[in-house]
Write a protein that binds this DNA or RNA. Sequence first.
RNA 1: GGCAGGGUAGCUCAGCUGGCAGAGCGGGGGACUCAUAAGCCCUAGGUCGCGGGUUCGAAUCCCGCCCCUGCCA
Length: 507
Amino acid sequence: MNKFYVTTAIDYANGLPHVGHSFEKVGADVIARYRRLRGDDVRFAIGMDEHGQNVLREAERQGIEPGAWVDDIASKWQATWQRLGLSNTDFVRTTSASHVRAVQELVRRIQAAGDIYLDRYEGYYCERCEAFRKESELVDGKCPLHPSRDISWTEEQNYFFRLSNYTEPLLDHIAAHPEFIQPDSRRNEILRLLEGGLDDISASRSRVPWGVPFPDTEGHTVYVWFDALPNYLSVLGYPEDGYEAWWPADLHVIGKDITRFHCVIWPAMLMSAGLPLPATVWAHGFVMIGGGKLSKSEAERIDLGRLVDRHGPDAFRFILMREAPWDSDRDFPSVESFLQQFDDRYQADLANDLGNLLNRTVAMIGKYRDGRVSGGQDTELENACRAALDAYHQHMESMQLHAALEDVMTIVRRSNAWVDSRAPWALARDPAAADELDEVLGALVRALARISVALAPFMPDKADEIWKRLGGAGSPPPFDELGERWPALVPESSEGVLFPRIETPRD
RNA sequence: GGCAGGGUAGCUCAGCUGGCAGAGCGGGGGACUCAUAAGCCCUAGGUCGCGGGUUCGAAUCCCGCCCCUGCCA
């Protein structure tokens, strides 16, 4: 059994999750579930980034202890992920004792490698960004990202990380492992960045008390990114024995805005500490409105909780992954069109095409064959299913998740067309056509069984339900076993429909 | 300012080693009836961002410009 260790970015504890966060988590969950269905032993870690000036400030604003504040935030994020059906095996928090210990150990190793030195830093410091800004970057004397706030000239002693030592090693690694950064466009960006050479970066802060104490010194905390990135190791128990069974990660799923940290700083830290590098960093795109990132007010108007409740978590997952490509951005003209498209996709794909296919199939088998069919192998439909599933696997392997869903919908459409072209209702009136009727209906059961397995990573609960309505027991089997484990071909007549149509106008 | 990607049917996008403009959704029409008034079949005539150029022929190659997004400065 292969191990497969996948992570997502940990989320910053100064706000609540919106649809953009859910995109990353659901996508990673789809991958994790797919790997399990391929027979891998999967570890899937998500979590919270809970240190830093902004978290501290927000807690103070609320008038509560930072520890209590992050506990509250973390429980809310976890509730959201649970509602979405994430199959994560771990939930890491950077304020946990085990994480703090792991960060300190990693910093010590980097120190032992000679890659940490103390130096004086002077510059403009933006507290919002928790970063220094060069004078040339300032706009009207303010941080370009936070023009409403004053920016102050600061001098402090900082520990620095010799990132500049790793320009060549990183270039070499990427050249030897082109799959290290994906998609290609992101790799190109990082290559250009590296070709320009790297500067050393500061690895500590002396003015941010809410953080991991810098080891073996007073008054310094570990810089937020040096604190956050090692979560991928700390969650495995590093430096205690046992983490080696899972490390290096097979896949870091992140947003395209933080590639620098994951494709440059993180691997350089690992190299310095003498640890192996993750196999792949995958930078997904964003859900955008009106050509730009989701603004706070747009995110509020979309309202993740209400969206999930609208058609249920499985439908939400399906629609999200079908609408937004996993390797690039998806832009909606407006919040209204996003919500409209969300419903339209539900109605067209899930209610009309898939739900109705299941319903009509089960109904016909009950009505014409007393709920019992056999046969249906080696039909035209079966061949179409095999071809579409081959494409599905190729797309899943290359993480074209949206394209894989298109492959599933191809099977659904083919099946619906098959019904009409073979007209089972006409065959049912002709006693001589009993065998042909059996073949047609059997082929539909087999097609739907394949659909349920292929959809399982995207809609785990609905896939189970499809499987059960076909007369299968439990959950759809792993891909390898589908050949032997067809459903009983005795669909039970069940009440209600899988995906009810939207009958009333949207409110 | 530098670099990368993009601007194609109402919407989202595919096509881009040059050769009759495509898909899905929405919209319109038709035949059927097992089904969630769903499905199936037919139908989209869009200056392929703008202006030049190469070519027998360009959405597809080259040059210039405009706009959008991202990374860097």
